[in-house]
Amino acid sequence: MKKDYTYAVARIRSRELSLLSRKDIDNLLGARSYEECIQYLSDKGFGGDDSNQDASEMLSAEREKIWSLMAELTDDLSPFDVFRFNDDFHNLKVSVKAVTRDVNPTGMFMKNGTMDGEKIYEAIKAHSYSVLPQHLRQPAQEAMTALLQTGDGQLCDIIIDRACLEAMRSKAKESGSDVIELYAELTAASADIKTAVRCEKTGKSLDFILRALAPCDTLNVDMLAKAASKSLDDIYGYLSGTSYATAVDALKISPTEFEKWCDNKLIDSIKPQKSEPFKIGPLAAYIIARENEIKAVRLILSAKLNDLNSAAINERLRDMYV
């Protein structure tokens, strides 16, 4: 039976009122100092009970709030695993490197994965891959073998990054939600495009590029890889014939501008969820909107801390959901 999210969506509607709007972002940009920004965010309910939190603690508390709210709203968080896989695979990367380099990874783990980072580390250390969730098992073995045999950290990274994108897409298809599928597809496609550009700039071989690119529905990775093994113009030429044609101009400016294009496209695509009353879409849209908000706040706070001017920050800010 299809799950009914009526209660959860009604609560999310009320929560959307406290999302930061463009006006709030302008107020943050207009703040005279980093401390004033922190005070403004604190007044908006950001952070935990501790009034002396720094930006990193505040934003980390905000991410945890997203997941504690989702746990309250639904008894099954698995459709949202797509959003948690990034943390899982980050923790896997940290664990594999910590084990092979014999360093203590405490403090390096992300908190909102589907499995506790310390447990992933323990499993990798003991070579007990069966303890790991399905989506981490094979990449963990592959990355460990690659790192132990070659000592190549970059190879280990591409194995894990590609596995993350594949796991996200496959989980998104299981969720049956358009928003979650779109999120996974855009994440995979933008990662592939960025990887292709980076590989072209560093002169990587076609084999390496093919290994690094994750399959996705909106891009033909073989053609993208071939283009990346030739020149940037070939990449632009290939993308011009895809649904990412409008991203080419952004890509020509800088990778950051391209990331902004991707984030704006995602935010724009989830806006219709504001009028959906029954399905999972508005919950997924809320998670994306909150992550986007946290990203914007992090950018503003680090700029304020480093005395960058508001115009420069403004150019890099993404559109907001509300």
Binding site: T6, Y7, A8, V9, A10, R11, R13, S14, R15, P277
Partner: peptide
Amino acid sequence: VAASGVLAED
């Protein structure tokens, strides 16, 4: 059900 969701927040 929807009303309860709103009341839980406001």
